[in-house]
Design a protein around this nucleic acid. Structure first.
Lengths: 144, 144
DNA sequence: TCTAATTCGGATAATTTTATCCTATTTAAT
DNA sequence: ATTAAATAGGATAAAATTATCCGAATTAGA
């Protein structure tokens, strides 16, 4: 469904949100260990999310990654997915046709539109805060 | 969402079903041209579908690919996807956790379960006949 | 029997995705 | 200033996916 990079990106952002919520800044090493991802690869993904202003990166000795507390609840899953995988997955044709719409639908169009719409809605309405809260309360997990 | 191989596989199977429905057997060349896919790569995918008994392949001079008419309505999209991409996409965790269930959910689990379930249901209930019929009636398209 | 049309399948190549390595740069603290 | 800890980013490598090439095998029909 999502690329590995996107999976890492989502998990990393949730973890950063959780820690930011608690007033803590987190290092790459910490993130990679917490979400069980390869460090250098995760670094590239965080750079991308930082350039896209989903997260903030702070260089230097006490540097790391964080998100302003008051932005956490307004950041949607779709922004993360978009920054890494683009929007093809929740806006594009299921069979990869360049143009697929009501006037020129692929064979799956009518069947797929509900799935895609539900995915789009889920990604565009789910915010970081609710995801981080699940981790905080020990109800959900980022690894294993 | 689906791999390129899977997209080709679905389109190819729909086209084979359409022609089989009309009592015609189709060649690889015909298929590749009709769904706009690379011939040799499509051949590998058709081999896989053939080994999985989704389609039949006939060797030799007047050979090609076909599906028994009376099986067309009973073949589900999920069988094609399964043969090529496996079932991870509609059964696995959205964040790639090896174990993700109600007792040990990933942060997205509760949000993702609806999407995944709708995708699973769509794939498991949509049959080849309805997809081929759309093409036959000129309402849907396999390319452009 | 021969030929032509076809699928099969092994080998290889190209491209994309995933992953690693290493140096430069930044910054807080001593 | 110096040092240590951290991110940035270019170069490269490994693995997976997508794509191509070509000879072997099969089969209908002349």
């Amino acid at each position: 469904m999502f690329s590995k990079a996107c999976e890492y990106g989502i998990k990393a952002t949730i973890y950063i949100a959780l820690k930011s919520y608690q007033g803590q800044r987190v290092s790459l090493k910490d993130i990679a260990s917490e979400i069980n991802s390869p460090e250098a690869f995760t670094a590239k993904i965080l750079q991308k999310l930082s350039r896209d202003h989903v997260i903030n990166s702070i260089k230097g000795a006490t540097g790391g990654f964080e998100i302003e507390k008051d932005r956490i609840s307004s950041i949607k899953l779709s922004q993360i997915v978009n920054a890494i995988d683009g929007d093809e997955i929740y806006k594009g044709c299921g069979l990869g046709l360049a143009t697929c719409n009501e006037h020129h639908p692929c064979p799956m169009h009518g069947k797929f539109i509900g799935v895609r719409e539900e995915l789009r809605y889920m990604l565009e309405t789910t915010n970081l805060e609710e995801l981080a809260l699940g981790i905080k309360s020990g109800l959900t997990y980022l690894k294993v």
